[in-house]
């Protein structure tokens, strides 16, 4: 019986479907999940989720979050997720540069707003992850 994979973010359901296997970036390194895996709850680090179905691999860039594996059902909750094929590299790079600049300005200011800093750091992290994931998939396609 194949795995059921769902990836949910605060604004949408980013992925849903069956899979033969899935690779998750956890805080302790990559974890591969196959049908029959023992129940698992893990912290997800920002990185790339790879879902394999019938030899085809779907890659998604995800931000930090949590995953639960129970009875061949893999549920990922994360702050942001994006299909690697849909990543616009230029937009991601721009977003990264923008976030980095804003972050430096905010850190240099006398009265930094901690909430704003957290948000900028999240944007920066996710943009960097998108760039890395995209870079990897395009180099493997060559």
């Amino acid at each position: 019986m194949p795995l059921q994979v769902e990836i949910v973010t605060p604004d949408r359901r980013a992925y849903q479907g069956a899979a033969d296997g899935v690779t998750l970036p956890t805080a302790l390194g990559e974890v591969g999940i196959l049908p029959g895996h023992i129940p698992l709850t893990a912290v997800i680090a920002a990185g790339e989720v790879a879902v394999t179905l019938g030899g085809k691999v779907t890659r998604l860039a995800v931000d930090q979050g949590f995953v639960r594996v129970v009875g061949d059902k893999v549920s990922v909750v994360t702050e942001a997720a994006l299909d690697v094929a849909k990543i616009d590299l230029a937009a991601a790079e721009q977003a990264e540069a923008r976030a980095r600049q804003a972050l430096e300005e905010a850190k240099g200011s006398r009265d930094p707003d901690p909430e704003g800093l957290l948000r900028l750091e999240q944007q920066l992290r996710f943009a960097a992850i998108q760039r890395m994931a995209k870079g990897r998939s395009s180099s493997s396609a060559d």
């Binding site: 302790l28 129940p39 893990a42 129970v70 009875g71």
Partner: peptide, 20 residues
């Protein structure tokens, strides 16, 4: 909820996850 009687693994650890 799929019935699964096996023990659950926690990464990095159960207290770490349950604190977050």
């Amino acid at each position: 909820v799929e019935a699964d009687e096996r023990d659950m693994a926690f990464e990095p650890s159960a207290p770490e996850i349950l604190s977050r």
